[in-house]
């Protein structure tokens, strides 16, 4: 709490509306919200099935897969961004093929922002959902089977509702992580206003030229974080009751 209090104390409240309503700030906020939402969706789409496999499969090598999935959690984001750049950059392993075959360049586009955010945020969703799946266990699914439910039906009607709170809290965490993403984004997507300059990037840049602006934007991020917690928390607490 103390660092946040520091922000409040340093804030230039009189200039606040002007600082927050500038074109640069508004476009950064919109970009941040949009990319974080898309990235969270991607995390659910890609991380959901992955969590199911991790929680339920008995195939060998699962521990290795889990370690790889968790890697972005411990890797410095800027290193992750560089790794993405060298994989998907125009001269990179995959990037060259994309450029040759489809004329696609990913780095320094909004797509790059989304990829960077997804890369760093997905472990949050996978860990949270895998935990929920393990806690729910297979007992309810077994009961559903004895009642005549096929595995697909049991998964849809029993497993998914049971892990929904876990999925929600994982998604909230992932969204928050996306909103705050800095290192991987700046390394892989750069800082172009309207395209790749998200709120944290703008804060960093403003800090050099206008400290009041940086503090105002920081407070905006605090507000977003608080909203995320308020929106995400009740569903999480609602739990199974």
């Amino acid at each position: 709490m103390l660092p946040v209090l520091g922000l409040f104390q340093r804030a230039a409240w009189a200039r606040m509306p002007e600082l927050l309503l500038s074109d640069a700030a508004l476009s950064a906020l919109r970009l941040s919200l949009e990319t974080a939402a898309i990235s969270t969706g991607l995390c659910i789409l890609l991380g959901g099935p992955l969590a199911v496999v991790l929680a339920r499969s008995a195939m060998p090598g699962l521990r290795t897969v889990r370690s790889i999935v968790l890697l972005p959690l411990v890797l410095p984001p800027v290193v992750g961004g560089l790794a993405l750049l060298f994989l998907l950059g125009r001269t990179g392993l995959v990037g060259r093929q994309l450029d040759l075959w489809f004329g696609l360049t990913i780095p320094f586009t909004t797509a790059a922002v989304v990829l960077a955010q997804t890369f760093v945020a997905m472990p949050f969703l996978v860990v949270s959902l895998e935990g929920a799946l393990r806690t729910a266990g297979r007992r309810y699914e077994s009961v559903a089977a004895t009642l005549g439910a096929s595995p697909a039906l049991a998964f849809r009607r029993i497993t998914i509702p049971l892990v929904l709170p876990g999925l929600m809290s994982g998604a909230v965490l992932a969204f928050a992580r996306c909103m705050g993403e800095f290192g991987a984004t700046i390394a892989f997507a750069g800082s172009l206003q309207g395209t790749t300059r998200t709120l944290p990037l703008l804060v960093y840049q403003e800090r050099e030229v206008d400290v009041d602006g940086a503090v105002a934007l920081s407070l905006l991020l605090v507000v977003v974080a608080v909203i995320v917690i308020i929106v995400g928390r009740p569903r999480q607490l609602e739990g199974l009751s």
Binding site: S142, A145, T146, L147, G148
Partner: peptide
């Protein structure tokens, strides 16, 4: 026959 097609309750 898999569990869900057995008609065996528990």
């Amino acid at each position: 026959v898999p569990p869900h097609r057995r008609g065996v309750g528990l």
